[in-house]
């Protein structure tokens, strides 16, 4: 209880005394990738929620008011960054649960990895910074329900 309280206070203080250092640097950018091992819906590594090629102007304007999917995607970016800076079961569970939710299959093992993209000169470089243990999809989906 006391630990949780101290944790909330430590999270509250940066909001009350903000640093406002938005985009001080452009850090390596995370992408969440996943694969499903075994089971009828086995999949090789693919990107979670790839962004669309185009978005219409009406959709952009509508998203000023209703943008839950994109905001969830930004939260996953935060969780991926936290997994590298300060790894926790909470961040891993958030990623696994939210990736599993969008999968049509419920059998097999889900594994995620965090790929960070950065620039080296003019070239873009990808590096895998984290790879989870495979977890039964049924267990994740059961936990989320």
């Amino acid at each position: 209880m006391l630990t949780s309280l101290l944790r909330v206070i430590s999270l509250l203080l940066p909001a009350l005394i903000p640093s406002w250092r938005f985009f001080k640097t452009v850090a390596p950018s995370p992408r969440v990738e996943y694969r499903v091992i075994a089971g009828p819906g086995a999949l090789d590594w693919c990107e979670d929620r790839p962004r669309p090629q185009d978005i219409s102007v009406p959709t952009i304007l509508w998203r000023m008011l209703w943008n839950p999917d994109w905001n969830e995607q930004l939260f996953l970016v935060s969780c991926a960054e936290r997994m590298i800076e300060e790894p926790s079961q909470h961040s891993l569970d958030e990623i696994l649960t939210r990736v599993a939710r969008l999968l049509p299959v419920g059998e097999g093992l889900l594994q995620i990895r965090l790929v960070f993209i950065s620039r080296d000169g003019e070239a873009l470089v990808k590096s895998v910074e984290y790879e989870s243990e495979p977890v039964p999809l049924s267990r994740i989906k059961g936990r989320a329900a």
Partner: peptide, 25 residues
């Protein structure tokens, strides 16, 4: 807002959650 900090172990939506909490406070 405090419960949200606990639930998401930090802001859900980065700076916008922090500004929400600052204005509320």
């Amino acid at each position: 807002a405090l419960w949200m900090l606990h639930r998401f172990q930090g802001p859900y939506n980065g700076g916008s959650d922090k500004m929400t909490l600052l204005i509320l406070t």
